[in-house]
């Protein structure tokens, strides 16, 4: 390794990245350091982003968008953002161990773009937007356009993730993940569901079920249509099952050491049906109270 660059502001970080595009950004380091330890990567240099204050801030504008800095840790999301971003906060609780949650960030999860990244299904389900920054300026990318393949994304060599924009206060959200251990486990299947009472839409984001994190559009359309938004009656078992089947149908899972493709499909169908019920229950409760 030849350089270790430690900018103290976002502009400086962008300049460094523009000057040396093969610098590897380092946020919490919980992915980068593993790569280094296993010697899968021997980067030419590191760009330490932990001293860039702009990346560690979040704010809510007009009560409807949460702008979450790329460098906010999972531990802070759990503590500070359970109300604004419930699915992301639940997902954050399932990431690694306390040590990992203290260091790991959503920016890092986006940077890695693993199909199993736990922060990603909530971003997909809520229709979030990624804000990228470089010396050339800022650009916004819809989350479903951000991932281009397994561990691949649209980030250009001089760009950094500045923040993610999540819609807030639209309705109940759920996140669930399945793995063969009760903690500290990489998802074998993960699913986020977000209800938007205003536009009467259901959003579904999936992890570990396709070469990249995806939405389940057909399932979204079906549920948005099938739910009794006005009357608020309960979900018929057939509707939940059909929703589960459509979610499973959207997947293109693999067989690997963590689980079989058949199991991944099965598990996500079960999770989808359960989480739609949970979200809907909450929606009806909020409606009758509100």
């Amino acid at each position: 390794m030849t350089s270790f660059v430690q900018p103290v502001g976002l502009d400086e970080a962008c300049e460094a990245k523009a000057a040396e595009p093969d610098l590897v950004p380092l946020a919490g380091g919980t992915d980068v350091m593993v790569e280094l330890n296993f010697r899968r990567a021997r980067p030419h240099g590191l760009l330490d982003l932990t001293r860039v204050p702009e990346l560690r801030e979040w704010s809510v504008s007009d009560g409807c968008w949460l702008r979450l800095g790329a460098g906010v840790s999972y531990a802070r999301i759990i503590k500070e953002l359970g109300g604004h971003a419930p699915a992301l906060a639940t997902a954050s609780r399932t990431v690694g161990s306390p040590q990992i949650r203290n260091r790991g960030t959503v920016g890092g999860n986006l940077g890695t773009s693993s199909p199993a990244g736990d922060a990603l299904p909530p971003l997909l389900a809520t229709g979030s937007t990624v804000e990228l920054v470089s010396v050339r300026g800022n650009r916004l990318v819809r989350i479903e356009d951000f991932f281009t393949g397994p561990k691949e994304n649209v980030l250009l060599p001089d760009e950094l993730v500045a923040a993610v924009w999540l819609p807030v206060g639209r309705g109940p959200q759920q996140f669930s993940k399945v793995g063969p251990r009760n903690a500290m486990v990489i998802a074998v299947a993960a699913l986020a569901t977000a209800l938007d009472g205003e536009s009467r839409r259901v959003g579904v984001g999936l992890g570990a079920l396709a070469p990249r994190p995806i939405r389940a559009v057909e399932a979204e359309d079906f549920a948005s249509w099938a739910l009794d938004w006005d009357g608020g009656s309960g979900i018929h078992a057939d509707v939940a099952a059909r929703f589960g089947a459509l979610v499973a149908g959207a997947c293109a899972p693999i067989d690997d050491v963590r689980g079989s493709s058949a199991y991944r499909r099965h598990a996500v169908a079960v999770l989808a049906a359960r989480s739609l019920r949970w979200a809907w229950q909450e929606y009806r409760k909020d409606k009758s109270c509100g």
Partner: peptide, 11 residues
């Protein structure tokens, strides 16, 4: 079962 990962509320 499922631990912190919110997989069941008893189902």
């Amino acid at each position: 079962p499922g631990g912190a990962a919110n997989t069941t509320h008893g189902e």
